[in-house]
Design a protein around this nucleic acid. Sequence first.
DNA 1: ATAACAAATGAACAATAGCTCATATATAAT
DNA 2: ATTATATATGAGCTATTGTTCATTTGTTAT
Lengths: 120, 120
Amino acid sequence: MEHGEGIERCEYMHVHEKIVAQVNANMPDEEILYDLAELFKIFGDSTRIKILYVLFESEMCVCDIAQLLGMTQSAISHQLRSLKQSKLVKYRREGKTVFYSLADSHVRTILDQGIEHVME
Amino acid sequence: MEHGEGIERCEYMHVHEKIVAQVNANMPDEEILYDLAELFKIFGDSTRIKILYVLFESEMCVCDIAQLLGMTQSAISHQLRSLKQSKLVKYRREGKTVFYSLADSHVRTILDQGIEHVME
DNA sequence: ATAACAAATGAACAATAGCTCATATATAAT
DNA sequence: ATTATATATGAGCTATTGTTCATTTGTTAT
């Protein structure tokens, strides 16, 4: 599927074709863009953001997270599943209990930048 | 609405109460969390991410963006509206044409961190 | 004023997401 | 084996979201 085919057009492109070439050169592959959007979707829910903030302080089991956030075990478990799939959290089992923790330092940077933006 | 009330509980909290205090101290306000989630929702769509990548190269009018991405003017305009509301892009009018550009340097940092994460 | 073009907008529709409820799985203790 | 506890999961419901289509608004030229 080529760009700009079968689509209504303006009279002419305002932007210089050199810019067009740069855009095409620097645009990440479709697959990366898809993964990137999927990643940010994970950050796009305040329950999951809360879970991440909780885990900034300490690794924690599902039930403790649920109590801290005042939500059901099921809801938290479902969200941890998403976070796990995105490799934002990791877990270890200890008997009946599963402890979750942050998998990655990007989480902090991404949330911090987000906070900076919304605080402006 | 207080945390942990009316919600099923585990037998006991595994985590130390000192940690609980830290969580409560460092958790951003509900309003900030809401705004933060709204912001990341904007990044959670590949069309909008593409628009941002386009604008990394140059300011550009709606129609040029639409052609570059092979999408309709309407779809792009709707997405630019979201981006505008989140203060991620700004615009200037020049005759019939409206030129959009990035509003903020956080956009780059956030996307770069996201790319780093998904590339790992 | 009228025609033409660029952009914005509202309604409608399909697809997706988050929560609840019920249930299943995993582990430990009796 | 049975019971109890912690976690995971699937189905169902409601709410939200991205696109298309039709239309409107804003600006310029005739």
